[in-house]
Each structure stands twice: as structure tokens, then as C-alpha cells.
Design a protein around this nucleic acid. Sequence first.
RNA 1: CGCGGGGUGGAGCAAUAGGCAGCUCGUCGGGCUCAUAACCCGGAGGUUGGAGGUUCGAGUCCUCCCCCCGCAACCA
Length: 663
Amino acid sequence: MSDEPKKPFYITTAIAYTSGKPHIGNLYEIVLADAIARFMRFSGYDVYFQTGTDEHGQKIQDKAEAAGMAPQTFVDMISGEIRRNWDVMNISYDRFIRTTDPDHMAKIQKIFKRYYEQGDIYKGMYEGWYCKPDESFYTESQLIDGKCPDCGRPVEYAKEEAYFFKLSKYAKRLEEYIESHPDFIQPESRKNEMLNNFIRPGLKDLCVSRTSFNWGIPVDFDPGHVVYVWIDALANYITFPGYNPDGEDEPSFKKYWPADLHLVGKDIIRFHTIYWPIMLMALDLPLPKKVFGHPWLLVGGGKMSKSKGNVIYADDLVHSFGLDAIRYYCLKEMPFAQDGNLTYDLIIDRVNGELVNILGNLVNRTMAMTNQYFDGVIPAKYIDDAMDSDLINEASTLFERVSEKMADLKISDSMQLILDLFRRANKYVDETQPWVLAKDPDKRERLGGVLYNLLEVIRISACLIRCYLPDTGDKMLKMLSCSDNSMESCLSYGLLVPGTKLGESEKLFERIDPVKQMAAVEEYLANKPKSAAEAANVIAAAPAAEQPSDNTPDEGSYITIDDLGKVELKVGKIISAEKHPDADKLLILKVDTGEKIRTIVSGIAKYYKPEEITGRTVTVVANLKPAKLRGIVSEGMILMAEHDGKLSFVAPSDDIPAGGSVR
RNA sequence: CGCGGGGUGGAGCAAUAGGCAGCUCGUCGGGCUCAUAACCCGGAGGUUGGAGGUUCGAGUCCUCCCCCCGCAACCA
């Protein structure tokens, strides 16, 4: 080994918002970062991997209140839960940070003040339509009939004092930086999006303080203001490694900054490639080398959401399928720039088809043959012909080929290379037919050589597999009685020492029976206790949900018979229907409800053509407050039943005339 | 003309700089028995969403059109 100091490599994930328990989509980013961090360490870099939680803001204040907790207690709980989830996934972060850390908060105040003093931040007015009872601002387009879209009460045009960051001042520099650093934004399509949609049209100044809530870092020179999310959250990347706003930076900061890679979801790439670089420019700091906006992990083809009820948690998956199976899935199934998909069926396919059949089976059969033919002792090297050199060549060049893919952040492709080697090795077994060689005493040397080659393939790939599936890689090395897991050992073929006794054989992955496993998953999910953090997710979802779900209602969610009486339902006949001229999803219906002909705008254009619903008998909510939808006033609502994207009218039979009441 | 992503054998995806359209799964047939009903070989299956154009040559470049998916506006 050389005495040169290792090259530093600083990698971050976005920090997780402490509003509830993270789902597998959130975890995917962390696993991705972990694999990169482990690979860079393996490749000889001095890696600093930072992740953590973002803990301020109105939403958290609201949720804490809804949960009946003090905000700090609430974020302590959620942050702990998030960290526990990271740990469940075996994440090798070097530091887990929290934005409620006093040291961080003090630095943010200083940074904020410096911006203000240099004239990058000025005090202005946040303007909009304000609904007093709701304490919320709305834009012109959000208003309904000029009233609050939430509660329907009148709004007033109001201004709130706020500080703004002058982005325009740095826009030109940023544009030049992005153009002269083609690797800065990845994937490249995002780069064009940022330039064309945001930077070139002109950046609007960014609101960086609020007075309407107080769960945040106070602006020390202006009581009543708290720092709004951007500066607080993004600056974690510099405050924690040791940036010092008013003095000498800590050595660790000098070593690691600028960051080599910010790994973030594609939804927040804008903040990391526009606001964050500008904030750094204003501090005279160098910009991060690369920002990668990764795709999303979807569930069943759609985005995970609480209202859809398709949220999947990482710890549940790990419980049902095993840690490395889930890590493998996250890393292997996700393409570089396209959203990936997760279903139980796909997980089972991957595990059985690749981890069990290809990887596990090769290890298993190699171990079994070595045990059977050589009493579990590593036989002597014996290289014979072209058959061998092909395999050996593929194994010896594995690191180099994987490394190329990793440099481009093509994680899935890099793992495919490892899997391909195992496919090649399985083929090698068939080509050489050790069981035939075993029958001929003259071929004993050759038999030993074949097994030696296979064991070497396992050893070399195990070193690399440790970066992605740490437990699995370790198990493989242990079976080989090999303790050297260095990159150097991965580069040279033939390091296993003949005569060494192998370790105990162990199945790396168990085959999953799809039917049995799915039954077990359902049973587990139905019976497991809900953690407090998951409960917070439910609380979080509640204000948005219009109806209690179909669970047995608890006391609080019952309505009284009087409440029901408030809803006036009537039978109506659709007299005419036409498409809304200015909307894709809406139909404009004229509905006879006995007392009058109503105009009802309904969002069913995707499901029904106007002509096919004319004349239908339907159920109408008659006393619903009229609302303007895309410019047309709708007087009421048609009841529909919905399942799996299919709609059906909730309708009385056609012999009930218009105007009939519904009870 | 809102922004963006995408249409490739049954399914999911590849195809660096235009150059024989590949891979995995599934399916059909064969082989093998060391192995977790696994592994190996072979076959069938595609006018690359459509129509034009550039070119010796187009999945790839240009023009127009159709369809799907996110986000946004509009799900009362």
C-alpha cells in the first residue's frame, strides 16, 4: 500500500422530513447512497457519508399538535424511527444529522445574517389572498368564487413580512457553471429542464423566512421571523462537516467540501441545482461536484400514497423477505433514469430467479462438490484450457468493469455484471462436468482445478457483493475461510490457498413459495402492532381524507343522525351532457332534480362519453355549496361508486321520477 | 400550442457516435444430475405506435400524426 493519503469522497442523501415514518421509496435513496459509499470505500477512498432528518416547519408543528405532543418531542420520536429504519437496512452512514441540533441552528443564524448584511437577503412582503381563520395564503388561481378554497369564507388581500433571497444576482454565474460542468446535473435530461424552465426565463426571488409559524430557527436580528426551509435544510451539507460562518473551518470541512455527490429525489433536484448553488456562491464556497436526481420507486405502477393505501414500509419487507433480498431489489430493479416498480410478485421473481437460482445455487453446488470430492479442503490450482481462461478472465476483470458502471452511477448495471459472472460460472460447471471427472481417478487433478476456479469466482465476487449486500458477501467469504476482502484481493486471481479447510456451508437465500409467502405477508401485516410513527402518518393523512375509511369507526369518527340529515339527496335525471370546453376531466351536465334544472360539473370525462350518460337516473347531493370548476358553477354533486379505477353511478331505478328524495 | 417521461417478440427492459434488433422472465423441445424442482443447450415468437422524408443503410436523424404515464390546471 502507498503512503499517499486516501482521496476524500463526500456523499449525502437528502435529509428526511420528520413528518412520519418513511416508506420504501424513501429508503431506496438511502440504500443507493449506501452502496455507492461502500463501493467508494472499497475502492480506496476516504468516504464521508452523511444523512439525517429535516425537522422544522409548519407541517411538523401542525402534526405535533394533532398528536398532542410538543414539536421537539414529536421530531425526537420520528427522527429516532427514521434512524432505526436506516439501521434496519444496514446503512453505513458516517454521520446521522438532525436540523434541530443547536450547533447547526447557531450556524444557520449566522449564515442568514451574513446574507442579510451582504445584501443577498432583503426584507419584503409575501403577498396573496389570505384566509384569516385558516391562516393560509392562496394565489388568485386557487380561489373558488373568490373565496377560500378550503373553508369557503371570504379572503382578503394581505401581505406578510418576509425575507427574500436575491437569486437573480447569481443567475448568470449559475448558468455558466452548469454549462461548463456537464456532469454537474445527472441525468442530463434534468440539466436541460433546469436551464430551460427555470434559469433562463429568470429566477424569482426566493422567500426564506416566515412569520406565520414558529417551529423553526429564529432570525436572531428580527424576532417573529423564522428561517424557512431552504437555508435551514440545504445548509446541513456544510454545517455538519464543520463549516464555520465566522472563523476558521474545521479540518474535516476543508477535507471533504465540496461534496462529491448529492443524491436526491428527482422532485427536489431544482432546489439542489439552483437554490443551493446560489446559496453557496453567496458564501464564496465551491459548488458540489455532482447532483444526481434519482427516479422514484413506485408501488404497483403508481406513486405510494396514504390515501391509496399502498404504502409499503421497509422494515415490513425486510421482515417478510430478508434484508439483502430487499437491498438487492432496490438496487437491481431500479433503472438509472426511469421510475422503477415494486410489487410482491416482482420481489419474489427476483429473489427466486436471480439470488436463489443463479447466485445461491452456484455457491451451494460448488461447496457441495468440494465437500463431497475433497472433504471440504480447497484443492490445488490446475489450469487446463480455453474453457478455464474464459471464466478466469471474466472474474479478473470484474472489478474494473463494475467500477466503470459505478462511476456513471449505473448501479443496476454494475450488479448485472456480477450476476453475469455467476451465470457464466454455472455454465462452466456444465461444460466441465465435475461429476464425470470424479468417476475417473486419472482426472482428479483436473477436477480439483475446476473446483478451484469456481471457488475463486466466488471469492472475487464476494468482495464486490459486500458493497451491495454486506451480509451476503461476508457469508460467502466465511464459507471460503477467507478473511481478505480488500480491493487488491479482488484484482488478483488465485489467492485461495490450497489445503485450506472450507467453512460451513450455508444457504445464502431461501427459495420463496409465492403462495405461502403471500399468505404469511398478509397475516403479518394484519397483526403487527403499529408504531407511533406510523400512527403519525395516519394522523397526517386524516385532515385530507374526506371520509373515514372502511375500517370499523372508532368513537370519534361516527356522525350523528342529525349530521346525516344535513345532507340532502335527490333523484335526478341527466338531460344533457357536454364536455367542458376548457378541461380534460370535466363534463358539464344539466340535471333535472324536480324543483329545477341544475348545472353540475363532474370529473368523469375520462370514464363516460356525454352521449352515453344522457337520460341516466342518478343520485344528486342537492344542498352542496355551489363551486366554480374551471370557470363554470356547479350546483351539486353526483354520487359515484369507485373501485380499481372503474366508476359506476349510485342510482335508483329508472321508475323513480326526478325530484324524488333519497333517505 | 402548459412542463416532462415513454411507446421495441406474451411480460419487463437493452441497443455507446445511424451499420446483421439483443437480454431476462414466460413458453415449447432437448441435455444433465454436483445443486435450493435447480443448472446447461436449442426452437418458436418483432414490418421497433403510424405516415412521410434524409441516407448505400434508420429503433437511432428530420417533419407530421396517434396513444400511454407523471406534474400542473379542473377531480364537489
